[in-house]
Design a protein around this nucleic acid. Sequence first.
DNA 1: ACAAACCTGTCATCAAGCTGTCATAATGAT
DNA 2: ATCATTATGACAGCTTGATGACAGGTTTGT
Lengths: 237, 237
Amino acid sequence: MTTLIEEPAEMHNNILIVEDDMAIREMMAFSLRREGFDTFKAASGHEALDQLNRVHPDLIVIDWGLPDMSGIDLIDMIRRDKVIKEVPIIMLTARAEEADKVKGLERGADDYLTKPASMLELMARIRAHLRRSRGFELTHKLEYQGIVMDAEAHEVLIDGKSLSLSLTEFKLLKLFLQNPNKLLGREHILNHIWGRNTFVEDRTVDVHILRLRKALKKHGKDKWIQTVRGVGYKLTS
Amino acid sequence: MTTLIEEPAEMHNNILIVEDDMAIREMMAFSLRREGFDTFKAASGHEALDQLNRVHPDLIVIDWGLPDMSGIDLIDMIRRDKVIKEVPIIMLTARAEEADKVKGLERGADDYLTKPASMLELMARIRAHLRRSRGFELTHKLEYQGIVMDAEAHEVLIDGKSLSLSLTEFKLLKLFLQNPNKLLGREHILNHIWGRNTFVEDRTVDVHILRLRKALKKHGKDKWIQTVRGVGYKLTS
DNA sequence: ACAAACCTGTCATCAAGCTGTCATAATGAT
DNA sequence: ATCATTATGACAGCTTGATGACAGGTTTGT
């Protein structure tokens, strides 16, 4: 199997750095790693898109001036992509002009920092954005009606009792817990668990749903994953 | 569907400004109003809390140094309040120290701007935050006289009770809910549900109407879909 | 290094649910 | 009363999802 989305045992946050200046890029990557983030690097817009095909970062830092395209264009592309469009983006550039800031923010960036940027401030802002996008889940804990998942510990408790799941089942349940009561189509599930450019039968999703249901059944909560014929599945109490 | 950045014309955002310097406060309020926001003002932490008891702003701008408490303390209080804790907060202060920025962001502010701040930048940042927080509230819901459809969850509730529909019935009901009280011709219905270039008898529509009515009948609302002889159907109370 | 245990992605098969059409009965309009 | 239009019940065909089995592949413990 080709697992494109690696989920390290300790679930760290993935940060993608898009910056053509190697010195700055490496420095940022270093600082971020030291803070416990997993970093991915890209030196151009195309490299960035390439990375995005393989990883779904939790946040992206983008330099305004890239060799092959403007950072703003990259943001546009990201915001148009169904799978990752929600990712927080911090724009980091040398342009201090007010008009540029406004433009960057209006065009889809969530934050705008001018170089030379303080690493501490960048870090703080990254954390602030992650705090939100992860749903105040800096603790890495997800919960829904008695199902408690500690993503970091890779552990699931149902009504206090521990539940063991395989990696795929775990990711699947996590996806459900992140979108409770929302309908998830097969396509969506595939994209988020196997990555976009993988060739996996959609029917495979069924099988994993089945397996997850079996696991939940031991705790009487197998009915919580509902099938919506022709569309997908959803987690409901 | 549509974009995330959908801006209903009538929709005004409530912004609460917490700032003790009257000149700055009024200037901000003025600028914000001109941009179409509804503003609420507070000159101290207590005034702010007072306001919060009456209004639930969509975003709060807080000055670090308030006469009666630190802006950070105010943030703490807000974040502890179950009802409004999710509101985006922008901290606006004279303190340019890096350590302060970090502290503000770590303690719960979503953004941090140093005075003198550019109104344009503030505006852009406010919009960027609203863009996100509103995205979550845009949970696509349709309602008509007790029939509530959550398209995202693919769920229909009638007077609170759940109703299960097949995919076609669901789409049909959705079409009606999107056009309440409007007359929908067969042709129109066909186009919207089966697509323009499909070969389906228009009598088929009748059958699906029938099925939808049957489903609604369980909740006594089958009469709501009226037949308009020779033309089509419409949803009416 | 080796075997046992476990995971995973696919299949083939089965059952259940949906759909589009008809034929026929109702209903409404003139 | 007659013609046009719609409501209904029945149905056969088709899709879609559930399930059990299985062959590789990987991990774990010894």
